[in-house]
Computed example of a mutant assay.
Amino acid sequence: MNNNQLDTKPHYQLLDGLRGVAAIIVVFFHLTEPLASSHLDNVVNHGYLAVDFFFLLSGFVIGYAYDDRWDQLTIGGFLRRRFERLQPLVVLGMTLGAIGFYFTDSTIWPLIHTVPAWKLIIVMLIGWTILPIPLSMDIRGWQEMHPLNSVGWSLFFEYIANMLYALGLRKLSNKALACFVVLAGAVLLHFAVTNPNGDVTGGWTLNVEQMRVGITRTLFPFFAGLLLSRVSRPASIKHAFLWCSLLVAVVLFMPRIGGANHLWMNGLYEAFCIIIVFPLIVYIGASGVVRSWTEEKICKFLGDLSYPLYMTHYVLVYFYVAWVSNHKGITLGQAWPYALLTFSGAIVLAYASLKLYDEPARAWLRKKLK
């Protein structure tokens, strides 16, 4: 079966819209993060949980789109389709990050001035593959596996989840998958409440500890989403997009729980959100119906913008973080014009990336990789 035939299933428009809502909140999170005195007082304190929400959405959508098509689809065909969807913006994000690298001049990244051009180019080329770089190739000083585009780490684990699904876990019965999800959820819960940071952050460094964090954050939500796509029977819920958007915002904007003295309480909150609240949001979103032309257009715009926004916004955030670090003690009240300018630029960059690059690149790849 060709790509056009495999693309006949309708999209969950509300889920597309929710992905866009979460992506916008991620940008807010990254704009407020450098203004916080610690991880305890960020204005968008749980913004990083959007990544876990994306994993769950991805598992749900992939299960819905592909679970009943494996009699007409090969593993190579599936992975090729995921490559077409994900890789163009991976390449663009790394390229833009490389172009802007030397211009993010700041004391926060002293390594920048010592990086020769050949090393930058090698890091960029490795980044194009989404494979992580070792710590010996770190050119920014944040110990990231993708120092030219911080968010690349989550795409690395997205690919891992996709490959695990294609190579075998898709064959699990619902009961076996449920057992796997329960076990993954127990591991996630244990990690969340025992982590010395009191949260689930991490996964962006190529070492044993952080790889464990990344796998832990990926396995439960992705395969819980897959299970949900199999067993849920959507009802008809009115105003689902509004309610789900509010729920996503409440979860991600919730202030830190437990403070510095009861870190496990915050971990428990985050585990509860990932294990219970996010599946509930996806279920409600999948049960909703677009009831107006305006709502349909909003969901489509947000859905189309979500992935480009996620994959390109940090290119501008690097400049913003450098500016904040060069103005020690600046407050949100003083920084908001620059934050708003960065946010607006991120929206414009994402839309331009979508229309001028991502959509044409995917169309070209679809023809070449048939």
Score class of each variant (00 low, 15 high):
4 N>C: 11
5 Q>P: 00
10 P>E: 07
15 L>V: 13
20 G>M: 10
34 P>N: 09
38 S>C: 03
40 L>A: 14
41 D>G: 09
41 D>F: 11
61 V>D: 12
63 G>Q: 12
67 D>H: 15
73 L>A: 15
73 L>T: 15
82 R>T: 04
85 R>W: 04
92 L>K: 05
95 T>D: 02
107 T>Y: 06
114 T>C: 04
118 W>M: 14
123 V>L: 00
126 I>V: 11
127 G>D: 07
132 P>I: 06
144 E>S: 09
144 E>W: 07
155 L>N: 06
155 L>R: 03
156 F>P: 11
162 N>Q: 06
166 A>R: 01
167 L>V: 09
171 K>T: 14
176 A>Y: 09
177 L>T: 06
179 C>L: 10
183 L>M: 14
184 A>T: 04
186 A>R: 02
191 F>L: 08
192 A>T: 09
195 N>E: 04
201 T>S: 15
203 G>R: 01
204 W>T: 07
209 E>M: 13
210 Q>M: 15
212 R>M: 13
213 V>K: 00
217 R>Y: 07
232 S>V: 07
242 L>T: 12
245 S>D: 04
247 L>N: 12
247 L>M: 11
255 P>D: 05
256 R>L: 07
263 L>Y: 12
264 W>P: 08
268 L>T: 10
270 E>V: 08
273 C>H: 06
276 I>W: 10
277 V>R: 02
281 I>Y: 11
282 V>P: 00
286 A>E: 09
288 G>W: 00
292 S>G: 02
295 E>Q: 14
296 E>A: 15
307 Y>C: 05
309 L>S: 03
310 Y>L: 05
314 Y>H: 13
315 V>Y: 05
317 V>N: 08
326 N>A: 14
327 H>R: 08
327 H>Y: 08
329 G>C: 06
333 G>F: 04
333 G>P: 01
337 P>C: 01
337 P>V: 02
341 L>R: 08
341 L>A: 15
343 F>Q: 03
343 F>P: 00
343 F>M: 03
348 V>E: 00
349 L>S: 09
349 L>T: 13
357 Y>E: 07
359 E>I: 13
363 A>S: 07
366 R>E: 08
